[in-house]
Amino acid sequence: MNTVIFRTLAPFLTALMLLFSVFVLLRGHNEPGGGFIGGLIAASALAIYGIARGIRPVREALWFHPMTIAAFGLLLACIAGLVSMLAAVPFMTGLWIYPSLFGVEVPLSTVMLFDFGVYLVVVGAVTSIALALEREDI
């Protein structure tokens, strides 16, 4: 696995996959995709980086501990549910706003926030497991 080609290509591959994972996450609202599968793609991107470069660069690149990322995702998902308290509708009701950014109407919703939370939980948890497994390898 530790060839020059792989080591050189891995960062580009990782960047591409991370980008793709965000695409899948956002696409998931109306089409196949979503937070879970997007998170898995992102986690495998990080795993590829880890296989090529070792786990320390992955941890440095992530900045936060993977479990912290997962916890933040859980927090976001919870908040997405609780927002409906302010709008006087039952828990987890989808709420939308349509702000206009540079003349483009951007639909934002608590559903998306929830999905983003799921994305982070999956990224954090799966990366945490992957890094732990890779560490045992050495």
Binding site: H65, M67, T68, A71, F72, L75, C78, L82, F91
Partner: peptide, 20 residues
């Protein structure tokens, strides 16, 4: 009805972030 569960998840997540 829902707050006990939501509260536990919320505070559990915060505690997990402050684990260190």
């Amino acid at each position: 009805v829902i707050l006990p569960v939501a509260w536990c998840l919320l505070s559990g997540a915060v505690l997990l972030m402050l684990r260190k």
